[in-house]
Simulated scan of single mutants.
Amino acid sequence: MAPFPTPVIYSMEALNKDLPIRQLYPEDIYPNGDYYPSPYGRVRYWIVGPEDGQKVVLIHGLSTPSILWKDVQAELVSNGFRVLMYDIYGRGYSEAPRLTCDPNLCIMQLALLMQYIGWDAADLVGFSMGGAIAASFAAMFPHLVGKNIVFLSASGLLDSVKEQPNASKETQPDSGQVAWHLRELQTQCLPGFSDMLESSKKDGLATGVNWAYRKLGKMPDKRCLIVHGIADNVVPYSEAFKIRKLVPQAQLISIEGASHFVPMEEGSKQKFTENLLKFLA
Rank of each mutant, 00 (worst) to 15 (best):
V8G: 01
Y10S: 10
M12E: 11
Q23F: 10
P31S: 07
N32S: 09
G33W: 00
S38H: 05
S38C: 06
R44I: 11
V48H: 05
V48A: 10
E51D: 06
D52N: 15
D52Y: 08
V56A: 05
V57H: 03
L62Y: 12
L68F: 06
W69H: 01
Q73W: 08
N79Q: 13
G80K: 03
R82N: 08
M85R: 01
Y86N: 10
I88Y: 11
G90M: 09
R91A: 05
S94H: 05
T100Q: 13
N104I: 04
C106V: 00
I107P: 07
L110R: 07
L113D: 02
L113I: 00
Q115D: 15
Q115W: 12
I117N: 07
D120V: 10
S128T: 10
M129L: 11
A132R: 02
F137Q: 09
I149M: 12
L152G: 00
S155V: 04
L157W: 00
L157Y: 00
V161F: 13
Q164M: 15
S168K: 01
E170V: 03
Q172M: 14
S175W: 12
G176M: 04
L182Q: 15
G192R: 05
G192C: 11
F193R: 08
E198F: 02
D203E: 09
L216T: 06
K218W: 02
P220K: 11
D221Q: 12
K222V: 02
C224E: 00
H228Q: 11
I230H: 05
N233H: 10
F241L: 10
I243E: 03
V247F: 04
A250W: 01
Q251N: 12
S254A: 13
S254D: 10
S259M: 00
F272W: 13
F272Y: 13
F279V: 02
L280G: 03
